[in-house]
Computed example of a mutant assay.
Amino acid sequence: MSDSVGASVVPFVTGEDDEEAGPRNPAERLHLAEAMRMAEAIVFASAEPVSDRQLAQRLPDGIDIAAAMAELQQVYARRGVNLVRVGDAWAFRTAGDLAFLMSRDSVQQKKLSRAALEVLAIIAYHQPVTRAEIEDIRGVETSKGTLDTLLETEWVRMRGRRKTPGRPVTYGTTENFLDHFALEEIRDLPGMEELKGAGLLSARMPSNFSIPLPPADPDDLTEDEDPLTDIDLEELGLLTPRVTEE
Rank of each mutant, 00 (worst) to 15 (best):
D64R: 04
G62L: 05
A66C: 02
V107P: 02
R37G: 14
L32K: 07
A67L: 15
A21D: 15
R114L: 05
V50N: 04
L72N: 08
K110G: 05
E71I: 10
D18Y: 09
L120H: 02
I63S: 06
A45T: 07
A66L: 06
V50I: 11
L72M: 11
A115R: 02
A91V: 03
A95P: 01
Q109L: 14
V107M: 09
V81C: 09
R24D: 15
V43F: 01
R104F: 14
R24N: 13
L59H: 07
M36C: 06
V86C: 13
A56P: 01
A21P: 04
N82Q: 12
R78T: 14
Q54Y: 08
A91L: 03
V50S: 10
L30P: 00
L112E: 02
G96P: 01
Y76M: 10
R53H: 11
W90H: 12
D18M: 13
D97S: 06
A91Q: 15
G96S: 12
Q108A: 13
E71M: 12
Q54P: 00
R24S: 15
V86E: 09
R79Q: 15
T14I: 01
A95V: 00
Q57F: 11
V43S: 06
A70T: 07
L55I: 03
V9G: 03
E48I: 10
V9H: 02
A77N: 08
A27H: 09
F92H: 04
M36K: 15
G96M: 01
F12A: 13
G15K: 08
S51P: 00
G62R: 07
S46M: 03
R24M: 07
G22C: 12
G96L: 09
A89V: 02
L55D: 03
S113C: 05
I63H: 02
F12C: 07
V50A: 02
V119W: 04
A47F: 03
A99P: 02
E16D: 04
R24A: 14
Q109C: 10
G22P: 06
A47R: 12
E34I: 05
I123T: 05
P23E: 07
E20W: 13
M69N: 05
A41F: 05
L120V: 01
L101G: 05
F92A: 03
E34H: 10
R24Q: 08
I42G: 00
Q57N: 13
P26K: 06
A56F: 01
A68T: 04
R85V: 12
D52A: 14
A70E: 13
E16S: 10
A56G: 03
V75P: 01
A35I: 13
I123E: 05
Q73S: 10
A68I: 06
V9I: 14
G96F: 04
D88N: 15
A67C: 11
L98P: 04
I65H: 08
T94H: 07
G87K: 10
Y76S: 08
A116S: 13
A67I: 00
V107Y: 03
E48L: 05
A41D: 08
P49V: 09
R104M: 11
V13N: 11
I122S: 06
P23F: 08
G87L: 10
R24F: 08
I122W: 00
Q109M: 12
F100P: 02
R29I: 01
Q54T: 12
A116F: 00
